[in-house]
């Protein structure tokens, strides 16, 4: 077998393995959905969490959030809906679920952020990148082909202006995204403590589903700020779910 044939055969095998694996995961996902529909919330949660070991998707986090919500665990539900929103910011259903879960916790909880945004931070970041490449390519072509030079120079200037505008919007999106709460309280017994020790004095009992800003990290503890009470303190990492920026 020649080298090229061997390479093509290897690629086909890898693609087949990938397809089988994806098919298995979809099957597991269907099974978890079935468990949830039958009201077997704990089983559904366990199955969804099993799939999470292979990766994340907006559908997976959304359905896991639904399972948590229906089993009465509102804090984890809020966390999962927020993860789903990060992965699929244009999904209106995920936004509606998140809004409902937040309202279930407290009408008074308000969370600043990009709920109205329809692009992820990565998508925002790629827009000015595309614009600057188009501007540069157009300029180079205009230089190399003097006959169409004036038209291409116009494209180059337009794309350059677009790069500046999109760059500004992307920077603003990044600022807003990084100002969103980073943590969601997922346990009902979470407490804000004065120092990062289990025996430290409790400042405040945190409501399940409360969303917090990280100010510092030390070992297994986060120094956080609770916007609802405007107080800062330490919480253990195992009582909160971190929402990565994306």
């Amino acid at each position: 077998m020649s080298g090229l044939k061997r390479f093509i055969f290897g690629c086909l095998m890898a693609f087949s393995v990938f397809q089988i694996s994806a098919s298995d995961l979809q099957s597991d996902f269907d099974q978890a959905n079935r468990s949830l529909a039958q009201g077997k919330f704990a089983e559904a949660i366990r199955q969804y969490q099993g799939i999470l070991k292979s990766g994340s998707s907006a559908s997976l986090h959304n359905n896991l959030g639904l399972a948590f919500f229906q089993s009465g665990q509102i804090g984890p539900a809020v966390a999962q809906f927020r993860l789903a929103e990060r992965l699929s910011p244009r999904d209106g259903e995920v936004k509606a679920n998140l809004r409902l879960a937040r309202a279930k916790i407290s009408k008074s909880i308000t969370v600043d952020g990009m709920e109205g945004q329809t692009l992820s931070l990565n998508e925002w970041a790629l827009l000015p990148l595309g614009a600057i490449w188009i501007a540069t390519g157009s300029w180079l072509l205009s230089v190399m082909n003097p006959r169409t030079g004036s038209i291409l120079r116009g494209y180059a200037w337009g794309a350059g202006v677009l790069f500046v505008i999109l760059g500004g919007l992307a920077a603003r999106a990044a600022v807003v995204r990084y100002q969103e709460p980073d943590l969601v309280v997922v346990r009902p017994d979470a407490a804000l403590r004065q120092s990062p020790f289990p025996e430290a004095k409790s400042i405040l009992n945190l409501a399940e589903g409360a969303e917090l800003h990280i100010e510092n990290v030390r070992g297994e503890w986060f120094l956080v700020h609770d916007p609802a009470s405007d107080r800062s303190g330490w919480v253990r990492q195992d009582v909160v779910e971190r929402i990565p920026v994306r």
Binding site: L36, S57, A58, S59, N62, N63, L87, V94, A96, N97
Partner: peptide, 14 residues
Amino acid sequence: LRPLKPDLGKLVQW
């Protein structure tokens, strides 16, 4: 609440 999503979608890593 909105209904379950039937398709798993593409899995990504954070």
